[in-house]
Structure formats: structure tokens, C-alpha cells
Write a protein that binds this DNA or RNA. Structure first.
Length: 654
DNA sequence: GAAATAGAACAT
DNA sequence: TGTTCTATTTCA
């Protein structure tokens, strides 16, 4: 017997192997197998098989599981993702079932025969396989001499059977503040848990949004709320895995890592804040978990609700076209807002803007809590030598370096590398260094100096977790300044009096084609989480934007969609980024030529804008492809197999 | 994704 | 002509 195996490598074709007779009875689509490739072992998924001459093929080494752990629904979802994101199936399947999931440590053997398998009773599958060999144990299993059960639910471990559970598959977009969303979710959850069904809820992160909903919903549904994938013990993770797979009546809260989690009697999917970037995955293959959650609901014939105070434009468009039912509640808007226009941006050389200091002095006098938003987390992201006018650039990739004061490091935004900070210019040795494009770290220090005795708490993606306690200790009547990036919108229910937006309009410059949408999400989510009574925006005169335009979801989205339509950008068209990288310029040009001729062959040359050439340490070409047509998928599928070529579906930073 | 291999660069 | 480092190919 020959099987075709999808491996978790960036190669699109399946690899074929011969199956030794003892493993033949187990062969089923999607079963995990351990196979040799280049003298190493890989875990792959069976995607096909046929009879025929096995000569010339290597043999598989082992069957991993007694039966496929992913059901028909997961296969459909993986196939959809593989096509939609131009990703090899093996990479998608590995994401669906990570090799590190310690399933066999929590499966135990129940012996059904005194003689052959009596000694194995109550051993874990892992230990039993170690003792007698996997082939022996699985042969007993196939002969019906033993059964497997998990140690959390004590139920038999059987193939997934989520098919045939049909609910009303309606899709809802719920637009409203966090209190209304919580109520909406609570009603849904109560209804399904009462019927013995599960509900799968996606949150963008575990620590903040995830923790908030876990706490709130645990109050309502004590003991019925499970979390999956949260950093904690492997045992907890496996407990959720088996309970979700085998039992009903639970709410399962998780991040994008539970997209493929098998869920018994899955009754509803909830996605909280679908606009969050954390739903995007970059490891292995690029995808957006919101797209996959919607697709999963479709495949499983179950309803889905997306809840947000500022929905993604893509979803809003589909909703207004009738794909989603829209429920709109009153969402937080500022009772009063003030624009403070400054003549130039904040730089480390100049003083803090007078408007900001006046505002904060007043707030402290009144013993108020004030939140300050700024788009950057580091001390400064633009470092320049005042003598030779040279920028601090990454020696590895040539990207701009950012200074992190807390770690005294220079970090490259392009490649992620870090370097110890030296207080002099690398080129000319001068010590006259200018820091501009300042962020949280800088403002935190300046404000601590300006207002001694007043707590200044930084809130960024990195510091949010460690500063949670400091935030909960805040009391009304004691002045405090909270300063942060968009992570400020994570700790829901942190009531502040004033919200001050500093350089929020800078997102216009750094946000690519989604700049306006990004600004809308940031502002709306800050309003939702912090519920300020007063809103202030400090803007440089040259970059001033009209705040008012961002307060009305409907008006904002309609205007923004009109712009996107005219420019032929998403959501009216899909965008792919094709990146070609070679160390050698000649080889690179040859590859670009090959790709262009392939584009001609598939008739997609007209969809390419560019190619744009970018010359750094390596030679890199980037081209942008825009279309929704099938021939583009075929072209990309063919091209992505070339060495040195990378495709990113739906890139956000262009 | 990474081992194997072909190719370039360098030293003898 | 041998050795080492790097880029490219191929994996069943």
C-alpha cells in the first residue's frame, strides 16, 4: 500500500510512502504518521492512498494515533484555509493539531481481556507504547482487546463525530459597548449551556480581554467556563481539550489556537472584537482567525456572532450587503471633546507641549485618573546623529532602529533583532544624538519628572500584565496618570476621567491603506474600555484630522468604504504580497523574470502593481497582486513553490 | 524546514 | 587541486 502524506513544510506536493503490513489496517485519511524524510522523522497527515508497486518508496516509521484525531469538519476547514491563504495543507494541518499536544499522556488503557492485556490496565497510552511497542498496543486495540479513555472525563476516546448537528446558521454583527456585548453573549451562552450544548468563544488574547470575559462569565456560569491555550500547565489545556471534545454544557474561551479544537455539540461561535490584530497569525502560514471562525460556523451549520464597538470594515461591508444581521446598540461617544492644536510634534529636544501640562495639572488638582494614548511603546523610534545626520540603522537588515530604555536596547522593527545601546553614533562617533518619534517610555519619564508623587503607570502590550495590579489598586480621589499604546483598550472597566490622545493622527502616516480604519478602531476601543468623561486630542497643526468623523460607526464606515472602492482596495478586492529574496542580484533578476513569465502564462500580469525593488543587504523584490479571480490563486500556488518566494495573503502593512 | 549538494571563494 | 563557506535544490 502507498500513502500520500502532507508534511508541515513549505512544499505544496504530498510525499508518498510504503506502508508495512502491520500498519495497513489503520490507514485512514488525515491519520497522523511518522515518516522519514532526509534521514529525519517528520509527523505528517495522510491525504490519500492507493495500491500499487511500493518499490522505490520509503516505508513509514509509525502510525501516531489509533484513528484520525481531526474530523471531517476540520478537514474541510483546513482545505478552505489552504486554498484561501495559498498555504501548503501540511502546514495548516499541523496548526490544527500541533505535534506537541500531549494527548497520549492523558489517555489510559482499559483492558477488556484478562490474559493478553491485563497487565496494561490503567497504564497511560504513552507508557504502554513504550513498554510493548506501539504496533503491539494498536494491534490489541484493533482486535478489541482494549479501549482508550481520557483521565478527565473518563469517557471512551473515539473518533470525532460532530457531524449532523444542525442549528440555525445565522450570522450576526453586534455593534455595541462592552456591557451590551457581555449581556448579548450571556444570553446566547445561557441558552446553549442549558441545552447541553457547548459554545466556543474567541478572544484576541488571554491576559486582558480573555481574563475579563473569563471572570465575568464565570460569575454567571460557575464551573462551566473552560479556557484553552492559556499559558498555564499542559494538564489544564488537555483538560479543556477532552471536556470540549467529549462533553456538552461548557463555554470554551480561547484565542486563535482553538480554531480547530474539536467541540462536541458546538452550538454557537462568538468572536469578541474581530478587528483586533491579534487574530492574525504569522507563524507557519498567514491567516486571520476571524475568517476561519466564520468559515467554521458555516461548515458546522451553527450560528456565529461577532461583537465589537467598531467592526472591521470587511465585516461591516458584508453585513450591510445582507450576509450578517446587524444589531446596533448605543455605544460610548464622548460627552465633550476638545482638539488641542500644537505647532509641531513632540521631540526629546523640546519641552512637553504646554497644553498637555496644563491639562494634567488641572486633572491632578481635581484628583482625577487620566489616560494618555500614544501610538509608540518605546522611548524613541527615530534616532539620528546631529553631527553626521545619519540615522541609527539595523546592521543586519538596514531597517530603522528604535530605542527601548527599560532594556537599554536598540530594536529593529524590520527583522526583530536587538543590539545593546551605545551612547554614540556608529558612523562618526559623535555623542550628539537626537531622539524623536517618542513613545510611552519617554512620556512616562517626562511626566514622572513633571508630577512627582503622582503614580504614572505604563500600559503597553509588554507591560500590561505586570502592571495589572497597579491598575486595580487605583482609587477614585487619588490622582493617577496611565500612559499607553492601544493596549490601553484591553483592561475593560478601568474608568478614567480624561482621555488624552497624543499623536493619534500619526497612525495616518504609519497605517498603510487601513490607516483611517485603524484610527477608528483605536479611538472607539479606548472610549469603550475607559469610558472617559472628557476626550482631548493633541494634534500637530499640519496633521490635524477631524475627530468628529470617527464617532459614528455608520457614517465612518460608509465614507471609508467609498474610498476603498474608488481605490480598488480590500474589502473590494483581495491583495497578495509576493516577496522574492535572493542574496545574489543576478539570481534574483532571473527569478523575477521567471515569475513574470509565469504571470503571463496564467494571464495575471495585469493584476500586478509594481514590481517594486527594494535593495538592502539581500536583494529583495516585492510585488503586489490584486484580484479575486481563480487564475490568480493558480498562479500564486505555482509560484510559491519556487525557492526564495514568499506569498502573504491579505497583507496589512502596505 | 532543513539536510544534501552544487557552487563560489579562498588557500595551498 | 584541496578546503571551507554559502547558496540552492530537493526531499518519497
Amino acid at each position: 500500500m502507498i500513502i500520500h502524506v502532507a508534511l508541515p513544510i513549505p512544499v505544496r506536493k504530498a510525499f508518498s510512502y510504503a506502508v508495512p503490513d502491520r500498519w495497513v489496517p489503520f490507514i485512514k485519511p488525515l491519520l497522523r504518521v511518522k515518516v522519514p524524510i532526509k534521514n529525519r522523522d517528520f509527523i505528517g497527515f495522510i491525504v490519500g492512498f492507493d495500491e500499487g508497486d511500493t518499490a522505490g518508496f520509503k516505508e513509514i516509521h509509525e502510525v501516531i494515533d489509533p484513528f484520525p484525531l481531526l474530523g471531517e469538519n476540520s478537514l474541510q476547514l483546513a482545505e478552505w484555509a489552504s486554498h484561501y491563504y495559498i498555504a501548503p495543507k501540511g502546514l495548516v494541518l499541523r496548526y490544527a493539531l500541533p505535534a506537541g499536544l500531549p494527548i497520549e499522556q492523558y489517555l489510559k488503557i482499559r483492558s477488556l481481556s484478562e490474559i493478553e492485556t491485563g497487565a496494561l490496565d490503567n497504564l497511560t497510552l504513552k507508557k504502554a507504547c513504550k513498554k510493548l511497542g506501539r504496533d503491539v498496543i494498536y494491534e490489541y486495540y484493533n482486535k478489541g482487546l482494549l479501549r482508550l479513555y481520557d483521565t478527565f472525563t473518563n469517557r471512551d476516546f473515539l473518533p470525532c463525530n460532530n457531524d449532523g448537528f444542525d442549528g440555525a446558521a445565522d450570522k450576526t454583527l453586534f455593534i455595541g459597548g462592552v456591557k451590551d456585548r457581555l449581556q448579548c453573549y450571556t444570553e446566547i451562552i445561557a441558552q446553549h449551556i442549558g441545552n447541553g450544548e457547548n459554545v466556543l468563544m474567541f478572544v484576541p488574547d488571554h491576559h486582558s480581554v480573555g481574563q475579563f470575559f473569563f471572570d465575568k462569565l464565570s460569575e454567571q456560569f460557575s464551573g462551566k467556563v473552560l479556557r484553552y491555550g492559556v499559558s498555564g500547565t499542559a494538564k489544564k489545556r488537555m483538560e479543556t481539550y477532552f471536556k470540549a471534545r467529549n462533553e456538552g454544557g461548557f463555554l470554551i474561551i480561547g484565542s486563535r489556537s482553538c480554531l480547530f479544537l474539536p467541540v462536541f455539540r458546538n452550538g454557537h461561535i462568538i468572536v469578541e472584537k474581530p478587528e483586533e490584530d491579534e487574530y492574525r497569525n504569522e507563524e507557519g502560514f498567514t491567516f486571520n482567525a476571524v475568517d476561519l471562525a466564520i468559515q467554521r460556523a458555516k461548515i458546522e451549520h451553527i450560528p456565529i456572532v461577532l461583537g465589537s464597538v467598531s467592526p472591521p470594515l470587511e465585516i461591516y461591508k458584508r453585513a450591510t450587503e445582507g450576509e450578517f444581521k446587524i444589531i446596533e446598540k448605543i455605544y460610548p461617544r464622548p460627552k465633550q471633546y476638545t482638539e488641542i492644536i500644537t505647532e509641531k510634534g513632540i521631540s526629546a529636544l523640546g519641552a512637553m507641549p504646554e497644553g498637555l501640562i496644563t491639562l494634567l495639572s488641572r486633572a491632578i488638582e481635581n484628583k482625577e485618573t487620566t489616560a494618555i494614548y500614544t501610538p509608540r511603546k518605546d522611548y524613541s523610534s527615530h534616532i539620528k546623529c546631529l553631527d553626521c545626520k545619519g540615522l541609527f540603522l539595523c546592521p543586519a537588515c538596514g531597517g530603522g532602529l528604535s530605542y527601548q530604555r527599560s532594556k537599554d536596547l536598540l530594536a529593529c522593527a524590520g527583522c526583530g533583532r536587538t543590539f545593546p545601546y551605545e551612547d554614540r553614533c556608529r558612523q562618526c562617533g559623535s555623542k550628539l544624538i537626537q531622539f524623536s518619534n517618542v513613545g510611552v517610555e519617554y512620556l512616562e519619564r517626562k511626566l514622572q519628572d513633571a508630577f512627582p508623587g503622582v503614580p504614572v503607570i505604563p500600559v503597553t502590550g509588554e507591560t500590561l500584565h505586570e502592571n495589572r495590579d497597579a491598575l486595580t489598586r487605583l482609587r477614585p480621589g487619588e490622582p493617577a496618570i496611565i500612559i499607553g499604546t492601544q493596549a490601553l483598550s484591553k483592561p475593560y472597566g478601568l474608568k478614567v476621567h480624561k482621555l488624552i490622545m497624543i499623536e493619534w493622527e500619526e497612525l495616518m502616516r504609519i497605517g498603510g491603506y487601513r490607516a483611517g480604519e485603524k484610527m477608528f478602531h483605536v479611538l472607539s476601543n479606548l472610549m469603550d474600555a475607559l469610558e472617559p468623561e472628557e476626550l482631548y486630542a493633541l494634534m500637530a497643526r499640519k496633521k490635524r484630522v477631524n475627530l468628529q468623523e470617527f464617532f459614528d460607526v455608520k457614517a465612518f464606515c460608509s465614507a471609508e468604504l467609498e474610498k476603498r472602492k474608488n481605490a480598488q482596495f480590500p474589502p473590494y478586492m483581495r491583495i497578495f504580497l509576493l516577496e522574492i529574496e535572493k542574496a545574489d542580484e543576478i539570481a534574483g533578476r532571473r527569478l523575477v523574470a521567471k515569475i513574470m513569465s509565469t504571470a503571463d502564462k496564467y494571464g495575471v500580469a495585469k493584476h500586478i502593481t509594481g514590481p517594486l525593488m527594494q535593495k538592502r543587504r539581500k536583494y529583495r523584490w516585492r510585488m503586489i497582486l490584486r484580484s479575486n479571480e481563480d487564475q490568480l490563486y493558480e498562479f500564486l500556488s505555482a509560484t510559491v513553490g519556487f525557492p526564495g518566494v514568499r506569498v502573504e495573503a491579505d497583507p496589512v502593512n502596505i
